[in-house]
């Protein structure tokens, strides 16, 4: 499927990127070109191939569910664009 501006607009919305019309004009052919290029993978038969997610076969370890870290609210908030009384501040969500 070829990618047009409306698809890129939708994807930008999903990715929470407020792109201008001129941004969309610019990115659409680039994204379409790259997606078309990666579609060459379609020529390889992968019917009996399992997807590979982890290259080093490391087993994920379980650990005791105990608190081993924390207690530094000030550090967590140190880089916040806006904070108040120990909380992050965001625009009003509930009317």
């Amino acid at each position: 499927m070829s990618i047009d501006k409306e698809i890129v607009r939708k994807v930008a919305g999903l990715a929470r990127l407020s792109l201008s019309e001129s941004d969309l004009e610019r990115f659409t052919p680039q994204v379409a070109g790259i997606v078309k290029w990666v579609e060459m993978l379609g020529e390889v038969n992968t019917e009996n191939v399992a997807p590979l997610a982890n290259v080093v076969n490391v087993d994920l370890k379980l650990r005791p569910d105990i608190i081993s870290d924390g207690g530094y609210q000030d550090k967590i908030l140190a880089n916040a664009p806006e904070s108040m009384e120990g909380f992050f501040v965001v625009p009003k969500v509930v009317e």
């Binding site: 997606v35 990666v38 390889v44 191939v49 399992a50």
Partner: peptide, 30 residues
């Protein structure tokens, strides 16, 4: 970065995940 976020969001989006991302993970195994 914007370009790659757009491509990544597209290949992970509903209906395309298997065709792109899983396909790529299979090629990665090969």
């Amino acid at each position: 970065v914007t370009r790659r976020i757009l491509i990544g969001t597209y290949v992970l989006s509903s209906g395309y995940y298997d065709a792109y991302y899983i396909k790529a993970q299979k090629l990665r195994r090969l």
